[in-house]
């Protein structure tokens, strides 16, 4: 197998974290590299490692410099030690790894009280609300990362025919489960928070599960399919819980 050289750029994020940059932009291939490196780091943590956060094209590694200092007895800085460790891990990464991912189906009740901006999105693109629902539920989306709130997925892959700018003035409160569009991204609110995304529907599923492990319905790397449901099916889901 030919050795594939991966461009890696490591930057400090202060004295207790660093960012391992694995490419630019939003790209499923770079995402795969992020996922591979995350898995390698999980299986081979270094002494002083705290945790990592994957993003679109990089991972942030959090560490305790004091633990590294007392365990290494080296004249190098903790930043240099962790940088070199992460560089080695990147070089160990296997290319052409067989993809394995989870497909998660998300039931969504579109429009009405659950999707107050569905009509706006339809009008914005001169299409019917049925068209918007059809296009949104036919896209297969990839969860690149979780952030903003617990379990909130940053997804790519939505059909750009329904890409819509955020609201000029954010809403003060958005209900958990609300499915929104912001530019080319689609996402699902996991907690009641303020937010500026165009809300087109709501899922009865809980995205944040604080008493489960992992504590979220979705994880980075999952593929998402949205399935339209009626308001009565939405109620049935809620009552099943």
């Amino acid at each position: 197998m030919p050795k594939h050289h991966i461009e890696v750029n490591i930057k400090s994020l202060g004295d207790s974290a660093l960012i391992v940059q694995l490419g630019d932009g939003i790209d499923p291939a770079i995402h795969e590299t992020v996922k591979n490196l995350s898995e390698l780091l999980t299986s081979q943590p270094f002494k002083g490692f705290i945790e990592y956060v994957p993003a679109y094209n990089n991972i942030t590694v959090y560490y305790n410099p004091y633990v590294i200092h007392i365990s290494q007895k080296s004249s190098l800085t903790a930043f240099e030690i962790v940088s070199s460790y992460m560089n080695d891990l990147v070089q160990q990464m296997k290319v052409n790894k067989k993809e394995d991912f989870k497909i998660v189906t998300i039931p969504v009740c579109y429009g009405g009280e659950f999707g107050p901006d569905l009509e706006h999105v339809a009008n914005f693109h001169n299409m019917t609300t049925e068209n918007v629902i059809q296009i949104h539920s036919e896209s297969e989306c990839l969860v690149y990362m979780l952030g903003f709130a617990p379990g909130f997925p940053f997804m790519g892959g939505m059909d750009t025919r329904i890409a819509t700018p955020r609201k000029a003035t954010p809403r003060l409160s958005i209900q958990p489960g609300s499915v929104g569009i912001a530019g080319k991204q689609t996402g699902i609110y996991s907690l009641e928070t303020p937010g500026g995304w165009q809300i087109i529907g709501r899922t009865p599923l809980d995205l944040f599960l604080p008493h489960m492990s992992p504590p979220t319905l979705l994880q980075a790397g999952d593929r998402i399919r949205f399935v339209p449901i009626s308001p009565s099916e939405y109620t049935d889901y809620k009552e099943m819980k």
Binding site: L13, S16, A55, N58
Partner: peptide, 10 residues
């Protein structure tokens, strides 16, 4: 800038 990890003191 795309969203990415931040930390205490950023």
């Amino acid at each position: 800038l795309l969203s990415e990890g931040v930390t205490f003191g950023t």
